[in-house]
Nucleic acid binder design. Structure first.
Length: 293
DNA sequence: AAAACAGCCTGCGTGC
DNA sequence: TGCACGCAGGCTGTTT
């Protein structure tokens, strides 16, 4: 799920469950995901109270007592599964051998649950990530933005500081399609394949157009549409926040409102032209060839 | 220097 | 039913 609106939704759900509570136990079920987990993560997190949360691009930062923040990225397939102790365990078969970790715990109720945090108010939050493209690290809270994964990120699209002038400046001289430029987290941070497609559709800009040619008047059309689609999606995810604590991890309803993403061959809502699918930089792009120029 | 690409992983849907 | 294949919402090196 994880583009900016999904990460924002997950983070709000995590805050609702964890903020103000103490982490009593961390179960680490493998050595790492995309990168190795930080050294002595269990010892550095256990016993700490959760102070606050912050999102930067598609990263979540969980501020802990003691001056460190847990930095979490959901990758392509990451989910957070929260449940109260005593809540019914979802029956699910897991391979033998995945059944226990070094500290003698029982089989995970979820496959691919690599990390489980338990709290002093009886909740358990699991990081489930089948493809293991996610990442977890610890960073000093006062230096969060200096972390190597955050240092090169561009502006937050929902900040007032993200203006058409700022976007234009980032696009000037870029000889790559606008689709690829918007996926570049150094240009603007937090957009992924879906919201880039949706924002370009709303702004009537062809995904094939050279990024440099979007600087100026087209950027002035694009920036409000980026903000609008993200806010609408956060709103749709937020409306199902309570679902977040369900073990099925279901989130959000915005997928019902995609105008182009995943709609190849279906009519454009505005002109009836069939939505096209092309591949750019190895990723699917969906757009209306008539409306987007 | 910027832009394109391979690679990391598993799961799901499709077509044979 | 089984199998091969293509595809998936991301990002980081490495190569061009």
């Amino acid at each position: 799920m994880p583009e900016l609106p999904e990460v924002e939704t997950v983070m709000r759900g995590l805050a609702a469950v964890l903020q103000g509570h103490r982490i009593t136990e961390v179960e680490q079920r493998r050595a790492g995901l995309r990168f190795p987990f930080p050294e002595n993560m269990v010892g550095r997190v256990e016993g700490r109270r959760v102070l606050s949360f912050r999102r930067r691009a598609k990263y979540m930062l969980m501020r802990l007592e003691g001056g460190e923040s847990l930095l979490i990225h959901l990758g392509m397939s990451g989910r957070m599964v929260a449940r109260e102790a005593g809540a019914p365990v979802i029956a699910r078969l897991v391979p033998q051998g995945a059944a226990s970790d070094a500290r003698g715990h029982n089989a995970p109720p979820e496959a691919h649950e690599h990390l489980v945090i338990s709290t002093d108010h009886g909740w358990r939050v699991g990081f489930v990530d089948p493809r293991r493209f996610g990442s977890v690290d610890l960073v000093p809270t006062e230096a969060e933005d200096s972390h190597r994964l955050l240092a090169a990120l561009g502006p937050e699209p929902l900040d007032d500081a993200f203006t058409d002038a700022v976007l234009s400046a980032a696009l000037v001289g870029k000889h790559t399609p606008i689709k690829a430029a918007l996926l570049d987290q150094g240009v603007v941070a937090g957009l992924g394949n879906i919201y880039v497609c949706e924002a370009l559709y709303r702004a009537g800009i062809s995904p094939r157009r050279l990024a440099a040619s979007v600087a100026g008047t087209r950027a002035a059309r694009l920036v409000p549409e980026i903000k609008a689609v993200l806010l609408e999606s956060i709103g749709a995810g937020g409306s199902s926040l309570r679902d977040y604590v369900r073990a099925d991890g279901e989130l959000g309803r915005f997928q019902d409102r995609f105008a182009v993403y995943g709609r190849e061959g279906q009519p454009c809502a505005h002109c009836g032209t069939a939505i096209a699918r092309i591949v750019q930089a190895g990723r699917s792009t969906f757009f209306c060839p008539r409306r987007q120029r």
